[in-house]
Every structure is written in structure tokens, then in C-alpha cells.
């Protein structure tokens, strides 16, 4: 891992910060456009061609707004929590091979799947802290909801993520994607479907978007934030979305692998990655648009009484059925 020009180019430009930023803004636009089409309206249309510059315009606006800090909060916590969450999310993305290998070449190791999931959990703690530090009843309620929901649903998430790891006999994301000659979505579809549902809860989208329920608790944990800090929170939410969608792609759809036709293989890998992730985003939006928001007690009950047993069952099923499926399909 030499600290030379290639390292800096990869970390800062491609596929590092700059590229990830552009990707996140693109997915923000895509999400809004898809949701709008489901609702029979136009979505962003005027900022740039097809409205593609809309997320940038929104962030520029946020950066130019006044940044207010409530007088009685712990200032360090109030300022540091969103930045903590944001940096942990970005760091987690460094371990997802968007162009076939990690951002920092050669940094993948056995167990970096667990590392990614751990980083995402810690980042959500950061979000909880930002709500808690706001000293506002609405933020307090929102923060507790984030914690309740996220911690609850982290368990089935990890259980279900072990499924593809088992199928690849490795906990390294690069190896998991490399061993998908056949996408794991076909080898264990039940894991895939459940993973989608659990991901909706992790990403706090309908029907599980209680932490953001604006009609009940105004803004939830982001009520007191404005200006730059709010931009950080929103960016971290968008990065979390990208991580979630990429997790599905690498675990179940074969990651960045696909037929390479001509030229640089890296660009083709990025292309295939994008196509698959866009499909995942589409499905996630679809689920999000056909359901109302569930109540916190229903979410918690659903988790402990339904999803955890089901995920354990599906993991068991994957292990049992795997040899059969391999012999039949391959």
C-alpha cells in the first residue's frame, strides 16, 4: 500500500471522494425522479437537463443558510455528531469494490464485510447522538426511535448477510463478488427478499420511516439543525442509502463483475455496478411507495416476532439447500 500518486488519485478522485460524491448526488436525483414518477408527477426538472443538478442546488442552498446552534447544548457533541456519522459512512464505502477492488488497493481482508456493517452501526450511533444533543423533545423522540429501530433490525441484517458469505466461503467482500459466477440472488432468493425488507428498515424508508416522520415529530433528530450541519446530516443519509444499495449489489447480484467488451476493465466494472445498483434503487423505491408508515410498536414487534426467526430460518435453508442447488443449476 504505497503512499504514492496512485493512492492519492484513488482516494481523492476516482473511485474515492469525488467520485463517491458525484455518485451520491446522482442517486439522490434518481431516487426523487423515480418516486415522482410513481406518484404521477414530474420530480426535479428545471435545474440542469432533466433536473440532474437539483441535488447540487439543494446542497449549495443548505451551505448558504444560517447555521444556528441552540444555546444550552453541548457544543462539541452537537457539532461533532453529524461529522462523525458522515465520515464513518464514507469510510465504510471505501471497502465496497466499485471498480473491482477497494479504493485503497490491497486493503481488503477476510472480515471486511463485518467491518462495513460495524461502521454503519457506529455511524447510526452518531445520528442518534445528534438527535440527543439537540435538547428538543421532538429530536429526543426521533433519536430514540432511530436507535430502537436500527439496533433491532441490525440483527437480521447481519444474519442475512452471512448467507452469501457462506455461499462464497469467505467474509471478504471482494471474494464474495468474485465467486459469484451465478448471482447469489438465484442461489438463495429468500435471503435476498428478506434482505430487501430489512434494508428498508435500516435505511429508514417507508414503511419503516418512523425516525423521520415529519407529520408527527416535525424533523426527528434533524429538527434543530440548519445550514452546514444539516447538509452533513443529509449527506450522511444519502451515503447510507448508497451503502445499502451497494451491499445488495455486492452480496446478491455479483457486484461489479460482468462481461468486459473492450477498453479498460475498470470502467466496465463501474458500469455494471451502476446498472445493478440502479435496479436495486428502483426496487427499494417501489416498496417504499406502496406502503404507509408503520407505528414504532408495530415495527418492533415485526422485527422480533417475524423477521429474526425468518432470517435464521432462511440462513439455515441456504446452508442446507446449497449443495442441491449447485448440482442442479451448475
Amino acid at each position: 500500500m504505497a503512499l504514492d500518486l496512485i493512492f492519492f488519485a484513488r482516494v481523492l478522485v476516482f473511485p474515492g471522494f469525488l467520485f463517491l460524491l458525484v455518485l451520491v448526488l446522482f442517486f439522490d436525483w434518481l431516487e426523487r425522479k423515480i418516486a415522482a414518477r410513481f406518484q404521477n408527477r414530474m420530480g426535479p426538472s428545471y435545474a440542469g437537463p432533466f433536473g440532474i443538478l437539483q441535488p447540487i442546488a439543494d446542497y449549495i442552498k443548505l451551505f448558504s443558510k444560517e447555521d444556528i446552534t441552540p444555546k444550552q447544548t453541548n457544543k462539541l457533541l452537537f457539532v461533532a455528531a453529524p461529522i462523525l456519522a458522515f465520515s464513518l459512512f464514507v469510510f465504510a464505502l471505501f471497502f465496497i469494490p466499485i471498480d473491482g477492488s477497494n479504493v485503497v488497493l490491497g486493503s481488503s481482508f477476510e472480515g471486511d464485510l463485518i467491518l462495513v456493517l460495524l461502521l454503519v452501526t457506529l455511524a447510526n450511533f452518531g445520528i442518534f447522538l445528534s438527535g440527543w444533543a439537540s435538547l428538543n423533545p421532538y429530536s429526543g423522540i426521533g433519536a430514540t426511535r432511530v436507535l430502537t429501530q436500527f439496533l433491532g433490525y441490525d440483527i437480521p441484517l447481519i444474519i442475512l448477510a452471512i448467507g452469501p458469505a457462506f455461499l462464497a466461503r469467505s467474509l471478504s467482500i471482494v471474494n464474495i463478488t468474485a465467486s459469484q459466477t451465478l448471482p447469489f440472488a438465484l442461489l438463495s432468493p429468500w435471503c435476498c427478499v428478506l434482505f430487501f425488507l430489512v434494508l428498508q428498515a435500516e435505511l429508514e424508508k417507508t414503511p419503516f420511516d418512523i425516525p423521520h416522520a415529519e407529520t408527527e415529530i416535525v424533523g426527528g433528530y434533524e429538527t434543530e439543525y440548519s445550514g452546514r450541519k444539516l447538509a452533513f446530516i443529509k449527506l450522511s443519509e444519502d451515503f447510507q442509502f448508497l451503502i445499502g444499495a451497494s451491499l445488495v449489489t455486492v452480496l446478491f447480484l455479483g457486484g461489479a463483475h460482468g462481461p468486459v467488451f473492450f477498453g479498460m476493465p475498470e470502467l466496465w466494472h463501474v458500469f455494471w455496478f451502476m446498472i445493478k445498483t440502479i435496479g436495486v434503487v428502483f426496487l427499494l423505491e417501489y416498496i417504499g411507495n406502496v406502503a404507509a408508515r408503520l407505528r414504532i410498536d408495530q415495527v418492533v414487534h415485526g422485527n422480533w416476532e417475524l423477521l429474526i426467526p425468518l432470517s435464521i430460518l432462511s440462513l439455515a435453508l441456504t446452508v442446507i439447500v446449497e449443495p442441491l442447488l449447485r448440482s442442479v443449476i451448475v
Partner: peptide
């Protein structure tokens, strides 16, 4: 709805 024109 995806295939219809937006009503806006």
C-alpha cells in the same frame, strides 16, 4: 403510473 405521462 411509471408508463403514464405526469399529470403536472
Amino acid at each position: 403510473c411509471l408508463f403514464k405521462k405526469p399529470v403536472t
